[in-house]
Design a protein around this nucleic acid. Structure first.
Lengths: 212, 212
DNA sequence: TAGATTGTTAATCGATTAACAATC
DNA sequence: TAGATTGTTAATCGATTAACAATC
């Protein structure tokens, strides 16, 4: 709860720093790399070292001058800042291929995300399971969010129904949405929405290839 | 081949404009919306209208003053700019869940992307198919890229092997990579690489949720 | 202490947006 | 013509990076 608001790119980079440190803790069994300079982190992540120090300075003084940042401590601090010290309940709207891939995605458990249910409007899917997760009728999503205390909704439905699904989620009380549907969803500003748009990524590449 | 280099966020937004226009052409059967003002596009996409005009102005004068932008013409121009008037051959490295979802992803055909092969190092997968696409040994990827003239490689292997796979792709002559592995891949600068990082997106949401 | 690296300020860079003359 | 919207300039905003005093 800082005064000056923190750029969202900074938060994105905190994720990268955190992952970098976690990896070091996993592999190098603690001994050698007790401490890491911003220059060393820069080398691993490809991010400018001044940027790293500035990003971290938004949240406190985690470093030791002349030495660097203690790996264990900083990793723990970042974990707390990013809310990865808590468990988060998640639902997925859309029992398609991408929904399936997300259900099986290993990174979720690792970060304390628990997928509580999948929702779809296709009656041939409702009542079945995807992985080990039950598929419910999308009409039940509002009630489910309330009773199961869901924090995060993932939208992997077609663009046409994405706005409607998002509205349902918000009506149920969801606070954050990750949207994979290629459409601009409008919600009241206190709901956090992030968009992942694969087409944009691909078309950035084809634009570049066309120049050659 | 413009002189002043164009911001990559501008290219991303061109994708959004293009998609917006295509959708209008699909739904409104041509009649009413022959022309669209930047203000109207702004309304649909959520992007500032001055921004839209500026983005388009990098590439030419597509609008009619007093009226707006002709939908069909502008859509065609954007299609050309983004290289979507050509076919692009693609390979996927990693026959996991995400690879599977990508193989089945409808948006590919629509944009002229043709998936020519999938590559993995798991001998129990090699020789089988994912969807209708054959799975090859990752060791053959260099040769395959050369002989099949592949332009785009998609990396959906674990972080540990991503750099190695990328190096192989580049050795084969690939020019653009879309990387889903959560690691910083280093390549010579003429190779275009875009990263899609799901963890970062999620952790942006949990950071926000933790503030509440 | 001398050497190294942080935390932070100031300079730079680049992107967004407002404003308006040009013009359909 | 009068009204509307583009294309473009100028102003604003914000993010990145260099530089360095503070300090371990």
């Amino acid at each position: 709860m800082k005064k000056k608001s923190i750029p969202s790119v900074t938060i994105n980079r905190l994720s990268i720093y955190h992952r970098c440190l976690e990896k070091i803790l996993e592999t190098e069994r603690g001994e050698e790399l007790k401490i890491l300079s911003s220059l060393k982190i820069a080398e691993i992540t490809g991010i400018n070292s001044a940027q790293i120090r500035k990003d971290l300075a938004y949240f406190g003084e985690f470093g030791k001058r002349g030495l660097g940042y203690p790996v264990v401590d900083l990793s723990g601090e970042l974990k707390k800042i990013l809310g990865l010290d808590k468990k988060w309940s998640v639902i997925i709207a859309g029992a398609g291929n991408l929904g399936k891939a997300l259900v099986k995605y290993k990174g979720f458990q690792k970060r304390g995300f628990v997928i509580k249910g999948i929702f779809d409007n296709n009656s041939s899917k409702i009542g079945k399971r995807l992985g080990h997760i039950f598929i419910y009728d999308i009409k039940e999503v509002e009630k489910f969010i309330q009773t199961e205390n869901i924090s995060i909704g993932i939208i992997v439905v077609p663009a046409d129904s994405a706005q409607e699904v998002a509205d349902r989620m918000v009506a149920g009380g969801i606070k954050a949405i990750l949207n994979f549907a290629p459409i601009h969803i409008v919600l009241s500003p206190e709901i956090k929405i992030h968009n992942v748009d694969l087409s944009i990524e691909f078309e950035g590449l084809t634009y570049y290839l066309s120049l050659c």
